[in-house]
């Protein structure tokens, strides 16, 4: 679980917040509603999550309810994996 959130955090920091201190990007920091991720950036996060964690994200699942916070993304991955196994 924590390894998963760290991977997502590292990706978002490197791609969209270069120079930001990792401590400032908390598990509950809003990503979409804050403007850290726009629609194009969200697609990149979705594609990263698919490749990295071996899940498929449907278009309707890539909205604010699953992708607005690292904690939500991680919980979403867990649910998808549980449903698969």
């Amino acid at each position: 679980m924590s390894d998963q959130t760290e991977k997502i955090r590292a990706f978002i920091l490197a791609e969209f917040l270069p120079g930001e201190s990792p401590a400032n990007l908390r598990d509950d920091t809003p990503l979409r509603t804050s403007g850290i991720l726009d629609s194009l950036a969200t697609l990149r996060v979705v594609s990263f999550v698919e490749e990295q964690f071996g899940i498929e994200v449907e278009a309707h699942e890539a909205g604010v309810e699953n992708f607005d916070r690292i904690a939500d993304i991680s919980a979403f991955i867990d649910r998808k994996r549980a449903a698969k196994s």
């Binding site: 917040l17 120079g19 930001e20 201190s21 990007l25 804050s34 403007g35 850290i36 726009d38």
Partner: peptide, 25 residues
């Protein structure tokens, strides 16, 4: 201000396409 704070600020003050990609102090 942290970079996240600046991004959030830009999101409120500017249209999305005007928000900088990189902030350097």
């Amino acid at each position: 201000p942290s970079i996240i704070e600046l991004k959030t600020f830009c999101n409120q003050e500017l249209p999305y396409y005007m928000s900088p990609d990189v902030f350097i102090y």
